[in-house]
């Protein structure tokens, strides 16, 4: 049995002290693949930002624990549209940023980190985009570079915010297959925000469903049962 790596303790999340979701208490186990589902504005991104420490909880806390007691390292994959195309970074420059957490301020990036970045780009199938300007890559290509960057951080938890938004079906399949593979091979905990039920069914083990201010949590098989889905959507329509 794997131990909990992320635990929400009576957590309420939102902005400026106004809770969007209340009383969340659940644990995400180390090495699990959890999908976060919910309609637009349900609080998926807010939950992600709270986990990552980008915004503080309104009430309660997020306990982040590794058995070794060392701090958890997040490999964050934002939506590529969130990054300003004005910056003339290459794919390699963007991926290399993943190593900055290990390099002290004022120190130059050592050759070993550059080599490791190339390894991660290769693993993510993004080596071909290393010298291209990041802003000029397609949605799927950007996503691969951002996944490579997340891998460069040597993460305990891979956090992906709708990685297949604005990506075509073939690229979506390739990206998700790759994430599933590294999840299995490296036993990395994966937290995936998505709208895509078939993806969840195929790759995830657990589902966190944010719905009308409530948080439903359970195994995929149970959460995506037709009767359960019908009741959720009925509630949404109602």
């Amino acid at each position: 049995m794997n131990s909990a790596i992320i635990t929400f303790e009576n957590l309420s999340i939102g902005y400026n002290g106004e809770p969007l979701l209340r009383d969340i208490s659940l644990s995400i186990n180390q090495g699990s693949f959890t999908a976060v589902l919910g309609s637009n504005g349900s609080g998926k991104s807010t939950l992600l930002k709270t986990i990552l420490g980008l915004i503080p909880p309104v009430v309660g806390r997020v306990a982040l624990a590794k058995p070794s007691g060392t701090p958890i390292i997040f490999g964050y994959v934002p939506q590529s549209s969130a990054l300003d195309p004005l910056y003339p970074f290459t794919g390699f420059d963007v991926a290399l940023m993943g190593s900055y957490g290990r390099i002290k301020p004022g120190r130059f990036v050592p050759a070993s980190e550059r080599e490791f970045t190339h390894v991660c780009l290769e693993a993510a199938g993004a080596q071909g985009f290393a010298t291209a300007r990041f802003a000029e890559l397609s949605g799927g290509q950007k996503q691969r570079v951002l996944i490579a960057r997340a891998l460069v951080t040597q993460p305990d938890v891979l956090v992906l915010d709708e990685p297949t938004a604005a990506v075509d079906a073939a690229a979506t399949h390739a990206v998700l297959e790759f994430i599933s593979r590294i999840h299995r091979e490296k036993e990395i905990t994966v937290l995936l925000v998505t709208h895509d039920l078939p993806i969840v069914r195929e790759h995830a083990q657990h589902v966190v469903w944010l719905h009308q201010g409530k948080v439903l949590y359970g195994p995929v098989a149970e959460m995506l049962m037709p009767e359960r889905l019908a009741s959720i959507f009925e509630m949404e329509v109602g």
């Binding site: 930002k49 990552l52 420490g53 980008l54 701090p71 997040f74 964050y76 934002p78 969130a82 990054l83 300003d84 910056y87 970074f89 940023m97 900055y100 957490g101 390099i103 301020p105 004022g106 990036v109 960057r149 951080t153 956090v159």
Partner: peptide
Amino acid sequence: LFHKELFLVSFDRAMAVTLR
């Protein structure tokens, strides 16, 4: 000396926060 920190914080604040 600090170009990488300044670029990271300018380009992707969320990433910078997750890297502490």
